[in-house]
Design a protein around this nucleic acid. Structure first.
Length: 261
DNA sequence: GATTAATGCTAAA
DNA sequence: TTAGCCTTAATCT
């Protein structure tokens, strides 16, 4: 379930459960051959930037990107954890906690300057919201003629937003996905940035992507969480127009033609 | 048991 | 713009 909020949430969990401990690091599946180089080392820090995660060990950094299928599985255990289930690329075992990683696009050992290289091509991350990030986001959008719907998914423009948040944030701000970035007004982009900053921490806190205002309690059912995502053909919650579906750069784009002009 | 879809991205054309 | 990659869960026969 990988958009930026998931990666941040996982990084925090790994930091909390495995940070500052010497870990047993392995690759049960065998594909991450560098695991042996880290075995027995301390996890110094786990951090996320957009959808990228960096696990800082004593002598190197593991860069992880879940891609579209990647998943973590966590277990607490007393004596020994259960045997890895499925194709586990990376297993990190601490005192009482073990983390298994399956199906990532990237799981590689890099050095510090490799981290910098990755960060250089990433746009601002609303879950970090450093000083000046909003302005950088706006510049990134307005210098492009590609449609805003594509730009929100471009990690060089905005880091951490994926297909669900893309659709939902555009709806929440009544913005058509098809407007070229260069034509979206600065005030609109300011509000969109602020909306990401306000909305995404809820996903980090709860682990659930919830984008509808007024549904913040409990654990809303899947079909109640969104305004437009995966709701093609169903009536828009605001105006009743059937929600539209189209492919935009190979990804499914959901939007309301009535609300998002 | 086979097929499909999934919250992603890269490199090649 | 397209093919390819990695894996699982849900949906089909």
């Amino acid at each position: 379930m990988p958009e930026g909020h998931t990666v941040h949430r996982t990084a925090r969990k790994l930091q909390r459960e495995l940070g500052s401990q010497s870990l047993e690091v392995s690759s049960p599946q065998g594909r991450f051959t560098d695991a042996v180089l880290l075995d027995g080392q301390k996890l110094v820090k786990a951090e996320a930037w957009g959808k990228q995660m960096f696990l800082h060990f004593e002598t190197g950094v593991v860069r992880i990107h879940l891609g579209i299928y990647g998943k973590w599985l966590f277990q607490k255990f007393e004596e020994d954890p259960a045997e890895p289930k499925g194709a586990v690329r990376l297993r990190m075992r601490g005192d009482r906690f073990v983390a298994d990683l399956r199906g990532p696009t990237a799981c590689e050992l890099i050095e510090q300057d490799g981290v910098s290289a990755v960060l250089q091509r990433l746009g601002p991350d609303p879950l970090r919201n450093n000083a000046g990030d909003g302005e950088r986001f706006i510049q990134n959008v307005q210098k492009s003629r590609r449609p805003i719907g594509q730009l929100l998914m471009d990690q060089g423009v905005l880091a951490g937003v994926g297909n669900v948040y893309r659709a939902e944030i555009l709806f929440r701000n009544r913005q058509s996905p098809f407007t070229p970035g260069s034509q979206v007004r600065t005030e609109v982009l300011e509000v969109i940035w602020d909306d990401c900053v306000a909305l995404m921490p809820l996903g980090v806190r709860t682990g659930i992507m919830l984008t509808r205002d007024g549904y913040l309690k409990g654990r809303p059912r899947l079909d109640e969480r969104y305004y437009v995502y995966k709701r093609e053909g169903q009536p828009c919650r605001e105006c009743g127009t059937p929600v539209s579906l189209a492919l935009m750069a190979t990804r499914k784009l959901y939007w309301c033609q009535g609300c998002q002009k």
